[in-house]
Amino acid sequence: MKSSPPRDFGSVRLAYINGCKDAFGIPAIILGSTYMGFGALVSETGLEIWHALLSSGINWAIPGQIATMELYAVDASLFAIAAAVALINCRLLPMTIVLMPHIRNKTTPKIAYYFMSNFIAVTGWAAAMRQCPLLPEEQRFPYFIGFVIPLWSICMLSTAVGYYLPGILPGEITMGLVFLNPVYFMLVFVADFTQPGRPTALILGAILGPLTFLLSPDWNLLITGLIGGTIAFYIAERQTRRKIRKVKTE
C-alpha cells in the first residue's frame, strides 16, 4: 500500500477550517456548476424553486435528484419514483459503512452521525477517504463536517441561482454544466487509482455499469456493485495471499 505521511492540523478547530478550505476549491466550483444545471432542470420541469431547494436540501446527491425530476416530469407513480431512487442511491449504504470507521471517534454522540449521514455524497466521501485516515482521530469528524456543510450550502445557493437562469443560459451550456459532474467524479477516482483492490473494482464497475443498464435500467447498479465488487474482492484477496506466501518462503 502506498502510505502517505500522517497529517495533523493542530486542533479540532483547525480541522474544521481545513475541511472548509479544501471544499472551497475545485469541489465547490464543480458542484456549484452542477447544481446550477440542476436548478435549471427543475425550472424547465415547471416546478417551483422550493421544490428544487427541498430536493438539494434533504435528497442531496445529484444522480437521485435528476432521476426524481425526470420521473416526476413523465408522471411516474410514487412507488416507481421511490423504487428507482432507492436503487440509484443504494451505493450510499456501502459508502457509509466504509466511511464510518474513518470519521468516528469516542466522544461524538451517535445522533450526530445520523444527522451528518445526510451529507455523505461522492465528493465529500472521496475527500474524507483520502484525508481522514491520515489525521488524529479527534480531527477526522470535524474535517468531514467542515468539508461537507459549506459544500452543501454552495449547492443550495447554486440550485437557486440555476433555477432563475434557464431563460438566459443556452441549452448547450446547461448540458456542459451537467456533464462536469460525472467527468469530475471520474477523474477523482482515476487520481486515486493506486490503492490495492481499487483499480479492479473501478474498472469492472465502469464496464458493467452501462452494460447492465442495457439489460435492466432499474437493477443495473445493484448488479454492478455485487458482481464487480465480488470479483474485485476475490482478485485482491488472492493477490494478498500470494504476497504473504512469497514473504514466508523467502
Binding site: M95, P182, F189, L204, A206, T224, G228
Partner: peptide
C-alpha cells in the same frame, strides 16, 4: 469496500 467502488464506477460510467 470493493462493492462501493464498483458501484461508484458503474454509476459514473453510466
Amino acid at each position: 469496500t470493493c462493492v462501493a467502488y464498483a458501484l461508484l464506477a458503474g454509476l459514473i460510467s453510466r
